[in-house]
Amino acid sequence: MTPPTRTRRWPAWAFLAPVTGYLVAFYAYPLYRNVELSLREYTVRSFVQGGAPFAGLDNYRTVLSDPTFWPTLAHTLVFTGGSLAFQFTFGMALALFFHQHFPLSRTLRALILVPWLLPLIVSASTWSWLLNSDSGLVNAALGVVGIEPVHWLTSPGWSLASVTIANIWIGIPFNLVVLYSGLQAIPAEVYEASALDGATGWQRFWSITLPLLRPVSAITLLLGLIYTLKVFDIIWIMTKGGPTGSSATLAIWSYRLSFGNLLPEFGPGAAIGNLLIVMALVAGLLYIRLERRQHLR
């Protein structure tokens, strides 16, 4: 009755064949195409007809020596760092709060997920209107306390902060959910023991919760980093990276070069894209290592 191992193995890969073919066609090939784009000098014509000359690392040199490179990299770091720090802090505070289980806590926790589930264009346009210079609610509220209206989206000094605020709002639910599930994994006995020792709530947080939550926190932050590096929609919809590039990140710059101009520059656009991939992959490999280590415990 038992079939030989050979026929046992073959059907397994038959079930995997579609997805494997799919991965090659729709992940590996676009990635390859992107690397190829970044190594050649493309024009609109050669993009369609082929035959673009090989340019080596020229596109990368162009990008790195562009005067907008360092500011854009700095915006990317500020956007990512600011988003992660605040999303994590708020997410942690909410997770600790909801972990106390009170009437309605389940329902409220589910409702807080809404910002994460909304299409990004919805969130971005809502924030655009909230932060509108003349008619936005935020400036109206500031006016009540006597603060002059701020040009959130249209002044170079504020645009990056504005898109970061919107992105923090979108990311809090994710941090809440992951940290909450991490809190649930901490056995209650640990807390009971510390309660006998007379530890206060704050002491318990610093000496028990936070250390035990370290693996989950690291994973949350790394996944957050990977997601935040990718962010494009929110910034593009709210400010298009402007004014004068003041809220442009690497993802925005790459898009602008390839799709945002009448005369696309696919080569440099792809080169920036590949820099982004390298950053995401470093974070990704770190994440996988952490994840494995946590499983071994």
Binding site: F232, S254, G273
Partner: peptide, 18 residues
């Protein structure tokens, strides 16, 4: 797992070309 980490903008560019 790795595939999920590729930025959408890169996928979009590859798709556009293909």
């Amino acid at each position: 797992l790795i595939a999920q980490m590729i930025p959408g903008i890169i996928m979009a560019m590859g798709f556009y070309a293909s």
